[in-house]
Simulated scan of single mutants.
Amino acid sequence: METWYYDAIFDNNYDVVSLVNVFHLGVFSFAITSLFIYKDTKLIKNLRSRSPYKCFYGSEEIPLIKINDRSVINGYVDKPMENWIYEIKRGDSQQGIDLKFIKTAKAWKGKTFLGDWLVIPRFKVKGTIYLDGNSISVSGEGYHDHNNYPIYAPLVNKGYHFGKIPFDTMNITWANVTKNRRKKQLLIVLNKDNKYVSIDSDDIRFTVERQVEDHDKIIPTIWRLNVENDFLYLDIKIESLHFHYIHIPAVNYWRHHVRNIGEISIDDVSRKID
């Protein structure tokens, strides 16, 4: 299973998520494309479609994804500025998006119990959202990750949480992957000054402080993330403001809009986060 995930939060209180999921199942392979549009953290538009694998094209040379011969992801280098730019297009002028993601932070790769994980944690984003035939100009900040893991991985792992905490010009990406009751994988990567630092998992504490029931499952809605070492002190409460359920084959998935509240200290320079 392979996933291309992009999200963006805009200055006018809109935000979007664009997903491409490809399921490699031999002759039964297929692709699902999803677009979620939010206003004031609440879902207002949901566009999803399923296509046979023969309608999917993914370049092995450049970031280029096409569905039915139409580009949905097109990445290239803007030569005058040497910036990586990703054009994300979904839907049409009635319902859809036409966005440019301009990379502003260093990418990194990781490996979890699920599989491979490539993250570009911050972008400048600008473009247009189309809602009911109306065009809305937007600008803001974005995030991208690309996951590749065996189709059986969600079945042999209990679950995972992941999120991001952008602040100033920096970003924290975090994940908690649970294989079973005995095996958990904690991951935090800090992007700063066009570099990234991976935090030792022994220095990370991740706890769930509140849970609720949804779709016959118990899901967390308040987490706490703590780190304390010679370089970084972190104490963040992550509180879900709104969430919604997304069904993906073999996966139960909830997407949360959260508020990050707490304190971070890097090299003895402290900042409040809210």
Rank of each mutant, 00 (worst) to 15 (best):
N46R: 14
L118V: 15
L43E: 01
P52D: 10
V125C: 08
G140V: 06
P121F: 10
K79V: 13
L25V: 03
V27S: 07
V125P: 09
N46V: 14
F30K: 11
E87F: 14
I102L: 09
P52E: 04
L131D: 02
I65P: 07
Y86D: 06
T41R: 05
G91L: 07
S49Y: 15
L99F: 03
F56A: 05
G115D: 03
A31C: 03
D92Y: 07
K106M: 10
L64A: 13
D116I: 07
D40F: 04
K126A: 10
E60Q: 12
L131P: 12
S51P: 00
G140S: 03
K45F: 07
T33R: 00
Y57E: 08
K103L: 04
S135R: 15
N83P: 05
L99I: 10
F123K: 03
R70Y: 07
K42F: 01
G58P: 02
L35V: 05
V77Y: 06
W108A: 07
A31F: 05
Y130M: 04
W84D: 11
K111P: 01
F28Y: 10
K100I: 02
L118T: 04
E87T: 08
N83M: 05
W108V: 00
Y53R: 00
K89C: 08
I120R: 13
I120H: 09
P63L: 08
Q95I: 02
Q94F: 10
K89R: 12
V138N: 06
S34G: 11
K111Q: 07
N68W: 07
F113P: 15
K39W: 00
K54P: 00
I136P: 09
V77A: 00
K45R: 05
R122W: 04
F101E: 03
N46K: 15
R48D: 09
R90F: 15
T112V: 08
K89W: 07
T112H: 05
T104C: 03
R70W: 06
S34C: 15
S137G: 00
G91N: 08
I32R: 12
Q95W: 14
C55F: 04
G75S: 07
Y57I: 00
I67C: 00
F113V: 05
D132L: 10
K124E: 08
F28H: 14
G26A: 00
I97V: 12
G96Q: 00
K109M: 07
I129W: 03
N74A: 09
I67M: 05
L64F: 15
I73A: 02
G140R: 02
F36S: 01
I88N: 11
A107L: 13
I44A: 06
P80H: 01
D98S: 14
G140Q: 03
G26H: 07
S51I: 15
S93C: 11
K42T: 06
